[in-house]
């Protein structure tokens, strides 16, 4: 005979223990530290640059086509080209900066928490400054 108390206990067990609980590292609710965000951004910019390589090669091939309209080089003056170029330059500068950070780590240096935070901030600021300079050079 199941008593009321036992039934209640089983219900509580069902409600609390048997639920699908979030598993470590709680990616949906966990605020990623700067270093982790920069790491995933390194991969994202890497994929963006791979797509840039694809477009670059297709463009090189198109130029070899003698039917390619001669005025098509005008597209380099287009805003569309410049936006794409700046997007890829941004991805390149970030990937370059964070890549250099990886080389420093490969040399076995810079693993203190404060150094990791500082390195990350330097990469962010360097990316923004280099992209701004490059945008200035491309636009003017």
């Amino acid at each position: 005979m199941v008593t009321g108390k036992e039934l209640e206990g089983a219900l509580i067990f069902e409600q609390t223990m048997n639920k699908e609980r979030p598993l470590s590292p709680h990616l949906q609710i966990y605020r990623l530290p700067l270093c982790a965000l920069l790491s995933i951004f390194h991969r994202i910019t890497g994929v963006i640059l791979t797509l840039g390589f694809l477009v670059f090669v297709i463009w090189l091939y198109q130029l070899t086509d003698s039917d390619y309209p001669k005025e098509a080089s005008v597209i380099f003056n287009g805003i569309f080209f410049k936006i794409l170029l700046l997007g890829w330059a941004f991805a390149f500068f970030y990937h370059l900066g964070n890549g250099l950070r990886h080389l420093v780590w490969d040399a076995g240096k810079g693993f203190e928490k404060s150094q990791i935070e500082l390195g990350g901030m330097i990469v962010i600021f360097a990316t923004l400054i280099l992209t701004a300079i490059y945008a200035f050079l491309v636009i003017f």
Binding site: S73, F76, L85, F92, L96
Partner: peptide
Amino acid sequence: LGIWLLIEIIAWPNFSY
């Protein structure tokens, strides 16, 4: 090489064919 290419590309918008 990437820095070289990015610097070269700056001149492209002013290029004729």
